[in-house]
């Protein structure tokens, strides 16, 4: 390419392509040259911007403007009836720090994240490796593991609502075989959050498995054969080769899992409504309550800003910290 390019093309750049090349035009062309270049560039730019406009408008209207408005709103009071919003500085943040329910929601959310994320990822990876192996009924297994993901969230929550119902729910029925007495799983402060964690793991593991499965299929079977010839056990191969090669997927899954765990709301609305006694109130659910039940929009905006900052910080931290240790193909 290099040689041909140099020999057969004059290094005239854009002008050469835009202008007529006959000798008679050359003089006139030279004087027009700079103008034409300018207007051509300008036209290209306008073209590009016009093409981007529809999606840019949507993005600005529904993403950037609300985010900025929320941020600004968190420094004002909530307008009520005849009283318009007034600038209150950091008052809302002060109130948040003094709000015990905010701290409880944050605490709940951290427990929820710290338990669902590793469980989901380990389970997803385990299922992917199992389903990727040369098993009989492999396609059936793939389908089975993936089913929870395609069900709508509300439907999933309703199914589990039944599973957890005291006395006649599936969980109690199974436990009753072993002589465990009936229990109000979702009504008990000690078990309600754990119940939500189980549902989340059950639902997300299949989804993340698909990503792991796709990544596993990218790994050439020759690699495991080469390792087998050297006498590497399957576990050794997984540890030294498969797992490192899956790291980009793990990072992707990790970030998604974190985001999922901080924006969970559907299951809570259907199954517990944050109860009992706020033990299942996660941040987003609390924001929803504050904003749309108590109509304290300024306080809700403040909570939202905190949630966004938390998420951004975590995503950034992961990319910076993990990126150095990941091999991308």
């Amino acid at each position: 390419m290099g040689v041909e390019g140099d020999l057969f093309h004059e290094p005239s750049g854009e002008v050469g392509r835009l202008l007529p090349r006959s000798a008679g035009d050359a003089v006139a062309a030279a004087s027009r040259r700079s103008n034409v270049v300018m207007s051509a560039r300008w036209a290209t730019n306008v073209n590009g911007w016009l093409l981007l406009l529809p999606s840019a408008v949507l993005l600005v209207t529904f993403t950037h403007y609300p985010a900025v408005a929320t941020f600004i709103g968190s420094f004002f009071s909530t307008p009520k009836g005849a009283r318009p919003a007034v600038f209150v500085g950091l008052d809302n943040y002060q109130a948040m720090i003094e709000d015990p329910i905010f701290w409880q929601a944050l605490h709940n959310n951290i427990i929820y994240a710290v338990s669902t994320i590793p469980l989901t990822i380990v389970l997803a990876l385990f299922m992917a490796v199992a389903v990727n192996a040369k098993l009989v009924g492999r396609s059936f297994m793939r389908l089975a593991f993936f089913t929870p993901t395609v069900l709508p969230m509300i439907a999933v929550a309703n199914i589990w609502l039944f599973f957890y119902s005291p006395g006649y729910g599936l969980v109690d029925q199974v436990f009753s075989v072993f002589g465990v007495p009936a229990h109000n799983w979702l009504g008990d402060e000690h078990t309600a959050l754990a119940c939500l964690i189980v549902v989340a793991v059950w639902k997300d593991a299949g989804f993340f498995m698909i990503f792991y499965l796709a990544a596993l299929q990218q790994i050439s079977p020759n690699l495991s054969e080469a390792a087998a010839l050297e006498g590497a056990s399957r576990w050794y191969f997984f540890r030294r080769v498969t797992f490192p090669l899956l790291m980009p997927t793990t990072l992707f899954v990790l970030i998604n899992a974190i985001i999922n765990s901080f924006r969970l709301i559907d299951h809570i609305v259907v199954m517990t409504r944050g109860g009992p006694n706020n033990t299942t109130a996660l941040l987003l659910y609390y924001i929803y309550e504050v904003g749309f039940k108590f109509w304290d929009t300024a306080f809700a905006a403040t909570l939202t800003v905190v949630l966004l900052v938390l998420l951004a910080a975590m995503a950034l931290g992961q990319f910076i910290f993990l990126d150095r240790r990941i091999h991308y193909q």
Binding site: N222, L223, A226
Partner: peptide
Amino acid sequence: MVFQSYALFPH
């Protein structure tokens, strides 16, 4: 054994 694809560990 040397494989046609070389089967080197990319990472």
